[in-house]
Write a protein that binds this DNA or RNA. Structure first.
Lengths: 211, 211
DNA sequence: GCCATTTCTTATCTTTTGTTAACGCTTTAA
DNA sequence: TTAAAGCGTTAACAAAAGATAAGAAATGGC
């Protein structure tokens, strides 16, 4: 179908600079393992119960992670263009995935497989760089997860929402509100009420004048 | 003060086998950087606002991670003997730590510093092994964090408590209940109520007989 | 052993959240 | 275009959790 353009590869390489700088020979070996994958809105990238074999870079589009509990979907996380995406626990352990990952929009990805990563980790020419790449990505994810855990332990749902509003205002634009509610660990109804409370507290001027 | 005994080193090496196997020459280089640290109950291993310079292995003793919110301590995590411990985000970024780590019991540790780790990562003889070590530890932590985040999104406090009861019953023996409550993201009073509810639900026989 | 502190429980009251259902509004698909 | 599905808000009620305080139980230090 769609091909892996030099532009897309260059973009990917640039984004990976945040973790590691590949030399040209290293990049040649790595990029030889990359392939493009296109996925339509609502299609599934990783399915609950199946092993995740890929780590992907999102060229365009967006994704949500969700679980099913009592027959209801609970959204846990979102990824957008310019980010790496995978069901990491499944990928790392090569065990069935708990979350399902679904495209929220039509999306294009650059991917590599677990198998090819393992091959590169065995290849003396790039092993060190790939180990470091993996380490730094993992370390990055640790910091993300840690902040999220801390937010659940130390903050109320309202505080978590305000934090999200400040740190990722774009996310609230791009993600349906009932998904955001799940992400915050509350129900959609509850988030709607929190928003109402905050709106009332933010602009009570006409009320105070009247009163 | 206390020395790093061969027995302690051997124990450490055995535990690290879960991540990586060091050859004897590799271990010689790594273990040369290790030192022992003893810390008394209630003393602080990592202090909020200060950079964490170490990753430690707990030979004996236990620790709690906590934050201060509105002047009150909120416990977030616990570590016991046989585990690695660090304020990872602070260690990895060499930035001020958010959590404080405090000994819950007198403890003995085997530690290495950020500086010595960086030196080993530069040393061609062990760089690859140390990169892998770091990667696998980080990947392990990712899986731990992910499960915790999922528990906050998909489970009620009661379900989280029951899960903990099943998966880490020992923790409930060794950690004061109000710390556990924090860990679960609720107040100590609320946990006490949950326990009461569960006790009533588990053994209501005499009540039904009476009724 | 005794006193002080900490920890846990319980009670009361308030606040928040969950649940369910209804209602408009928008989006999607036939 | 029309019907269906999805989304956000609101309401009403039930359930749970937070805040505060008081008292019992356990722990720790001297």
């Amino acid at each position: 179908m769609s091909t892996l353009t030099p532009e897309a590869l260059k973009l990917y390489r640039q984004h990976l600079e945040a973790f590691v700088s590949f030399t040209d020979p290293e990049w040649a070996l790595f990029s030889a393992q990359l392939y493009r994958r296109d996925i339509r809105k609502r299609e599934v990238l990783v399915e609950h119960g199946k092993v995740c074999h890929e780590v992907c870079f999102i060229l365009s589009g967006s994704f949500r992670f969700f679980f099913i509990k009592d027959g209801v979907e609970i959204s846990n996380y979102f990824c957008f263009s310019g980010e790496l995406i995978s069901a990491y626990q499944s990928f790392l352990k090569q065990a069935p995935s708990f979350p399902t990952i679904q495209a929220m929009e039509d999306a294009s990805l650059i991917c590599f497989t677990y198998q090819s990563l393992q091959a590169l980790l065995q290849n003396p020419t790039v092993a060190l760089k790939m180990e470091r790449f993996g380490r730094l990505v993992a370390e990055y994810l640790i910091c993300c997860y840690e902040e999220r855990v801390v937010s659940f332990v130390t903050q109320t749902p309202e505080e978590r929402y305000l934090d999200l509003l400040q740190k990722q205002p774009d996310l609230l634009q791009r993600v349906p509100q009932h998904y955001v509610a799940n992400y915050l660990g509350i129900t959609p109804v509850s988030l709607s009420r929190i928003r109402k409370r905050l709106a009332a507290a933010a602009a009570p001027k006409h009320l105070t004048l009247v009163a």
